[in-house]
Design a protein around this nucleic acid. Structure first.
Lengths: 338, 338
DNA sequence: TTGTATGCGTTATCAT
DNA sequence: ATGATAACGCATACAA
């Protein structure tokens, strides 16, 4: 592999001159510049980022730690992050934790070894309790680089963060059902141990209360964000003969399980039961099901997360910021009786 | 940030001793080892990967260049790669090219600057022509690190690669339709400028010929791997009143567009028309549509790609290898008349 | 068993 | 305007 020394020799100048050419720093005569540039181009020389980082005592690398690389939601976030990373000529080290705390710890250590400039993190789902949040804090504090939390908030975060407004998402979805004239309104919740599960459920409850409805516990079905559970819950719901008029579904997988059971029972959305979901389900487009949902622009969330990180890197003294992306309702018709 | 020097001072030993402790290399007395380890743990010291790489003249970093981070297919591949990367304590630099050749070039340069140990690459879709393949070759050759091509083969590749057996996928899918007793068999092709589009189509044709059928050009619909195009093609097909009995769909998006149009026309799979697709479409599970398809285990493809890269890194003289993952047919019923 | 010295490929400071 | 040299944090060959 070629080094700056080789280039210097071939050009008949000193290493420092080559360095000045490479970085457009300091004075360098027009003649020599041309000569050096020519040699560099001819020999396909590319300076070592490693040596550069060591010398400059700072890297152009940022870390991204995500729990589910194969989930479209995070895939889109990744795409958004990547856009901004490229635009700023940075390098991204990627880690997939598979929602495993141990893997997350390992990733964080590795990123510290790599001396990353900053870090975007969506913590493992298991940090919802205060004790676990403390554990995360210990690790992140030791690693003294800017951090932006993405999508999953922990209790009392000390870091910048970007989140969706889960509470208002649940609220607005429920409100839409109420405004459509329904009285007996239910929900299949997400995993309530997770903070966004709780927040969406709280939004649901608040909308119920604010409209002087009372919460009917019979219509609160405890789900866990998975298709399978939602499917089984819905089947039981149907079998029991005691269904709500309308229902709020806590995430895309829940929607899928729910709709599957509804269709199997030969029921129809907007006739036999109404609903609003959380997140778009493109699958339902195939069926031309007019499915109402809370929309999230995830690519943009990724972009914003990365931009926040850049801001923080450039201005370390900035006050802590949390960006809450407003919930946006897309009503297609499934929320009301035809 | 702490350095090895700080640790050495605190422990009252030389830097080299600390280094030996860190790397379990050379002799070091039991006493001193304990002492040094204690200091290291107490002070949360983590050695700089940058300095280490520079000194050892080799990095533990590999590059992954992918065209569509927000496509589940690549998300799963990423997950598989990541698994093996973690298991071997490597670091992964990730780049998303968005199928843009220019971005790909930039990514490759960056990875060379980073002195990555090896590289997994799914080239941009535009490299199907020989001239463009040459262009890629120039760049990759200059960058003298092991390369594994993933999923997309280029003409006359000089590198290791892992691909699905697109030809046999198309062949087997078509054969299944023939064996189900169909005569008038068609296909919505993928983008035929892309190699996997051509391969799947070639498999289709070969199956037709091998069974003494003749190819009816009327039933060959030129698609482009997108939902929208497949949807429009299918609508026209239906409107024309001249439909094949059975059809091979070249990828998951094509399947979605096709099914959407079929459903809109109130037609039923396995009654009004039969089909076999390429790749699973989970959406169809909702509808309990018994959809037959060519299955691909993408997570595993990622794992294997990374393993191939490791093998190549460890044994640079290994003969060039191409791993072709066999096509696996999953027949659920949509291929034959009920 | 431990310490000293050199080098890895850059940047940056200081002479010239 | 250019060159010599030290420094970055670590590994390693060699000396002790």
């Amino acid at each position: 592999m070629l080094t700056i020394k080789d280039i210097a020799q071939r050009a008949g100048v000193a290493k420092s001159t080559v360095s000045r050419v490479l970085n457009n720093s300091g004075y360098v005569g027009e003649e020599t510049r041309k000569k050096v540039e020519k040699i560099i181009a001819e020999s396909n020389y590319l300076p070592s980022a490693t040596a550069r980082s060591l010398s400059k005592q700072e890297s152009n690398t940022i870390g991204v730690v995500i729990p589910e690389a194969d989930n479209t939601f995070f895939g889109e976030a990744l795409r958004g992050i990547s856009e901004i990373v490229d635009k700023n000529d940075l390098t991204m080290i990627f880690c997939n934790t598979e929602n495993n705390q141990h893997k997350e710890q390992k990733a964080l250590h590795m990123l510290e070894e790599q001396r990353v400039r900053g870090l975007i993190l969506t913590p493992t789902a298991d940090y919802s309790s205060p004790t676990e949040a403390k554990q995360l804090k210990r690790v992140l504090d030791n690693l003294k680089v800017p951090v932006v939390l993405m999508d999953r908030r922990v209790e009392n975060p000390q870091w910048d963060g970007i989140y969706y407004d889960n509470f208002n998402g649940g609220y607005k979805a429920t409100e839409a059902l109420i405004q459509a004239g329904h009285k007996r309104i239910g929900t299949i919740t997400g995993d309530l141990r997770q903070i966004h599960g709780r927040e969406r459920f709280n939004g649901f409850k608040q909308a119920i209360f604010d409209n002087d409805f009372s919460l009917n516990p019979r219509y609160v079905y405890k789900g866990d964000f998975t298709t399978q559970t939602a499917y089984e819950i819905t089947k039981k719901m149907i079998a029991s003969g005691e269904m709500p008029e309308a229902i709020f579904l806590s995430n895309n997988l829940t929607s899928i399980g729910f709709v599957k059971a509804i269709f199997e029972a030969r029921m129809e959305l907007g006739r036999d039961i109404c609903c609003v979901g959380f997140d778009h389900v493109d699958t339902l487009d195939i069926l031309n099901v007019d499915f109402s949902y809370v929309e999230r622009d995830t690519i943009n969330m990724g972009r914003m997360a990365m931009q926040m990180l850049l801001d923080r890197i450039e201005q370390p003294m900035l006050p802590r910021r949390e960006h809450i992306i407003p919930a946006h309702l897309v009503l297609k018709g499934s929320e009301k009786k035809k």
